[in-house]
Design a protein around this nucleic acid. Structure first.
Lengths: 244, 244
DNA sequence: ACAAAAGTGTTCGAACTACACCCATGG
DNA sequence: CCATGGGTGTAGTTCGAACACTTTTGT
């Protein structure tokens, strides 16, 4: 592998949906003094890393996701670059960078990506570091300017949700209409009428009903659907709109 | 001023509207061999520059606009970072960078900004370099990957035009409704019905009619309007939508 | 008087909103 | 048999689409 570029990084806002809440994946940032064993840092950050000289920024983000999930082809989208001079200013952040590598610059421009994963069917591991899902409405204070980056990523997710069918990326391949509805309600912060929502979704030819029902639920089992990106791409003259 | 960062730049896609076509501002890139006087490079690029160590990326884009127009407070928005390893690959591009400064890296991540200026009331100058408006449907081949950057910027302008009232930035302070209509038609590539367009615009409380008419036109003079961002901000619960 | 763009209202159909009752399953 | 969410239709309203004639100015 080639050398690390000391002043450019990528940070990933990884969203997951557990059929109830929208969650973000964070990694623990823990550092203790080698002699005194005193805890110098113990908090959480987004998952990010510097890029390599021979690596596209997109590839760097993919690399991080691959390392975390073992999967390729995860939905990934760049949303903003953060290039303020003083975005890394807190002594903790500087200490952490120095501890990671003496070669890292203190002036780092980072490129924010958001990624949508289907948290019910993915197992996560990041070496020795602790990673954990946090619901959006119960986030800790994050290191660096990661609260800001996270919020910008969320804003972009919301915008894009309204105009393109990316919500499906957060659900398993087979899903029910009310799972989809809960997803949209949770992310957009709105409530939809059940009948109207269903009516709207059934009009979308790229949401395809299966001859298959939910199992093991203690109520009338719902019909399962799949999303077909192929059909969507072919028929997308109709403007996608989730503004019920 | 502090030192230049060799591997990070900003590039600006500067849009202007002349009441007819949407134009982009480009700068000539000309280089001739010092001895033989042979022309080594003669083409056009977006306007961009490396950032300084003590400069936010946003500030770098503002600096470029200020140098070009003499104005602060021009509409400016970051739209994407371009971080491919081989985005600078053409020998001409490498030659140009070397000629500009030996210190520039060949691996440059650039951050794209688009900016909207009111081309009828601004005068432009960029030192010794030749700058010129090009209509979007008659662009030359650009240096670097600037055609790609320009197209991404245009895409973003279009998206944003549909959901936020940024088109007004391309018009002078006082404008007529049909100037506004031509602007939207030109950028979105659609045709609107004149009566329906007018009806829609008149509903927007932040488009304020003046007691003033066009002068010197050889037809019935149109009423003039101004856009009030203040009123817009106060009333923006209503979703802005230009999907007539 | 003519050319050129401004200004103005109504009708039709599509899309969104609101709303209440029965159904299938697990416990 | 009960609790839980699944599934269904209709009426009212709002919003966008289509469309033609008169007015004001400069030449």
């Amino acid at each position: 592998m080639s050398k690390i570029i000391p002043n450019i990084s990528v940070d990933c806002v990884i969203f997951g949906f557990d059929f109830n809440k929208l969650n973000v994946l964070l990694v623990e940032r823990k550092l203790e003094d080698e002699k005194s064993k005193e805890t110098l840092i113990d908090d959480w950050t987004l998952i990010g890393y510097h890029i390599y000289e021979e690596e596209d920024t997109d590839s760097a983000a993919k690399r991080i996701l691959k390392k975390l999930t073992g999967l390729d082809h995860i939905y990934l989208e760049q949303f903003e670059a953060f290039g303020e001079v003083y975005r890394i200013n807190d002594p903790k952040d500087k200490l952490w960078l120095k501890y990671q590598s003496e070669r890292f610059s203190e002036r780092i421009v980072t490129i924010g990506y958001f990624s949508l994963i289907n948290s019910t069917s993915v197992s996560l591991s990041l070496h020795e570091r602790n990673v954990k899902w946090f619901p959006l409405n119960d986030l800790p204070e994050l290191g660096f300017d990661h609260n800001k980056i996270l919020n910008k990523g969320l804003e972009r997710l919301r915008d894009k949700m309204r105009s393109e069918p990316i919500g499906f990326e957060l659900l398993p391949g087979k899903f029910t209409i009310s799972q989809l509805q809960r997803l949209y309600e949770e992310i957009l912060g709105t409530k939809f009428d059940r009948r109207n929502f269903r009516k709207k979704v059934l009009q979308m030819k790229y949401v395809i009903p299966l001859d298959e029902k939910q199992k093991g639920v203690k109520h009338k089992p719902a019909q399962l659907f799949i999303f077909s990106r192929e059909v969507y791409e072919k028929t997308k003259t109709e403007r996608f709109d989730f503004s019920i």
